[in-house]
Each structure stands twice: as structure tokens, then as C-alpha cells.
Write a protein that binds this DNA or RNA. Structure first.
Lengths: 160, 160
DNA sequence: TGCGAGGTGTTATGAAATAACATAACGGGC
DNA sequence: GCCCGTTATGTTATTTCATAACACCTCGCA
């Protein structure tokens, strides 16, 4: 992380086992409902994101892709990420060049993150953009999507 | 831009001549007041940003840097950008990998942009982050900086 | 069964950013 | 003035991030 510190950074949990299977199943179901296909590469990338401890870089995914350690080719992963973002299953965190699975209920929503500069955790939260949307409207803009990234320190990393 | 369209994209204005000189002078003054130095590379990069029609990529700056067409070396420009961001003279737009000069009054503020996917304009506006900061505080985060990027269409590009 | 749309595999390349190290300019204390 | 620590610059090379381009495949459907 961009900041040296002495903490024990307890892992922000990935999901595994039954829970992971359930999440993948739910994704499968949502795809079916929307006439989209959760193909093997897409499913694999989503699986890796869901199992991860925190935001993953594209090349982390590329390296981790193969079952026996063989990496994927970059376009394979970038295409899968594009799909997952489009469906709302994952978000890109611009300021980290990294990706996280979506943890929220709502589908295809705007994304907002609290990013800890110390431990690297990225916590998604439900933003209220009404004030910013009002400002945008009065400037004549038609807003399609909004992303917000707040950098700082999480509770655990503030202690010292 | 990421979206084909038929508009005549009138130029979002860079500043030039006297106005540019005044802006650089003001920057010089603020540096002096803060024991910082607006060295030649920093001044040159700021000048390029202020004169530009819209967001500039780092490699646009690198290419445009030399008076007679010789490019700068990447670290020259990246260091200058880092300085300009630190002092609040410029902002990075994460979702574009591009930079704009700061158009606001306040110093070292958080940044918020309305980005037109059609003409590429990036309009800075004064955000009200109180609701998001409340949410962050209740999650235990100590926020240092916030960036918001809203993508959509500007007034001119909505017409058709 | 032939066609079109969407998806994948593969090679290669392009774009964005930084590491590492040498050199130079500046400012304060003596 | 001169030394010295600090800050900034110059330069080479490399790393990291992302996409172009094209061949092939596969599924639904006329």
C-alpha cells in the first residue's frame, strides 16, 4: 500500500466453498434472466474476484486464471471484466487500476468506495448522489454513471 | 471520445496571452507564499494544461513539452504533475488517465467532474460531499480526499 | 444448412507509469 | 564565502496496464 505502517492487516474476507458456489449460482441466474451468458472465462474471473481478499489487478487475475498455474492471455481477462462490469457483478476502482466484485444488492448501480491507503481495503458503500446529480442537472449534463472514490484510513489503520 | 456523434464540438477554451500570464503569475505567488518553487518544468506543464482545450494525457504533455517539438522525458512530466496536484493547481481525472488545470477558487480541495462521453469536455464543479462523508465517518473511515467523476452527455451533445 | 451475432484464442503492439541512479541548484548555518 | 543537507532535475531502462487485429468457433434461427 502507499503508506508504511505497523498494523497487522487482518484480511478483508473473500468468500469460499458453499458461499462462493451460491454467489456464482446467483450470478448464473441473473444472467439467464437477462439473456446473457456466464461463460467459462467470465465465471472464472468472477470466481477469482469473489475469492480474493481485496481489490485485484488485471494482471493478478491473469496470473491466477489457470487451474495449474498457467496464466490467461490479457484479452481473455479484460473481456471478462468488461462483461462483469456491464452486468454490475464487478467494479473497477480507477484510482487503483483494480477490480472488486460487487457487494451490493442493487443491480447496475453507481459505485462508491472507501479505500484505505494503509491496508488496501476497498469498502463499497451505498452513496447518496442526489446533491451532485442536482448540480449536474443544473449544468445541463445528462449523467449516466457516477463513481466516487474516497481515500483515507480505515478504522483499524487509524489506531497507530 | 468513446462515443460517435455528429456534433460540432465547439472548443472548451484554454486560456492564452495576458490571461495565461496572469494565471501563471498567480500560481507563482501562491508557491512563494507556501515556500514552494514553481520551477521551469512545473511552470511549463501548468502552462500547457492551462492552454489546452480539454483534458490532456501525460503523453500529450510529454510530446508538447519542448518549444521546438522535442518531447520531454516521462519522469519530467510525471514529477511536474505530481507537484501540481499536490499544490492543487491540477487534477487527475482517473477515468480518463488525463489531467486538467484546476478551475476552482478553493485551494487543495477535493475534485468533482462532469465528463462528456461525446465531446470529451470535463467540467469541474463544486461538490457537496457532506452525505458521503457522513457515511464514511459512520463506517469508521478517516477520509483524506474524495474524487467524483460523473460520466454522461453535456448539454450541447444531448441535442442530437 | 447456411448465415449472422456474439464469444473465444492468439499474436503482437501500444499506452501509461515508475525504478534507479547520477547530477545540479538552493538555502541555512557557520 | 563555503560546506552540507535537501530538493529538484536529467537520463536510461523497465515495468505495468490495456487494446488492436484477425482467425476460428458455436449457437440460434431462417
Amino acid at each position: 500500500m502507499s503508506e508504511a505502517c505497523r498494523h497487522d492487516h487482518g484480511s478483508p474476507h473473500g468468500i469460499h466453498g458453499t458461499e462462493l458456489a451460491a454467489a456464482l449460482g446467483a450470478a448464473e441466474a441473473r444472467c439467464a434472466a437477462e439473456q446473457e451468458r456466464l461463460t467459462p472465462p467470465r465465471r472464472r474471473v468472477l470466481e477469482l474476484l469473489l475469492g480474493a481478499e481485496g481489490p485485484l489487478k488485471a494482471y493478478d487475475l491473469i496470473a491466477a486464471y489457470g487451474d495449474a498455474g498457467e496464466p490467461a492471455k490479457p484479452p481473455t481477462v479484460y473481456r471478462a471484466l468488461e462483461f462483469l462490469e456491464r452486468l454490475g457483478f464487478a467494479h473497477r476502482i480507477e484510482s487503483l487500476n483494480a477490480y472488486v466484485p460487487c457487494r451490493m444488492e442493487a443491480e447496475r448501480h453507481s459505485a462508491a468506495f472507501l479505500i484505505c491507503d494503509c491496508c488496501g481495503a476497498a469498502k463499497e458503500f451505498e452513496p447518496d448522489f442526489s446533491s451532485q446529480l442536482t448540480a449536474a442537472a443544473s449544468a445541463g449534463y445528462a449523467v449516466r454513471s457516477v463513481t466516487l472514490e474516497a481515500r483515507g484510513l480505515c478504522g483499524e489503520c487509524q489506531g497507530g
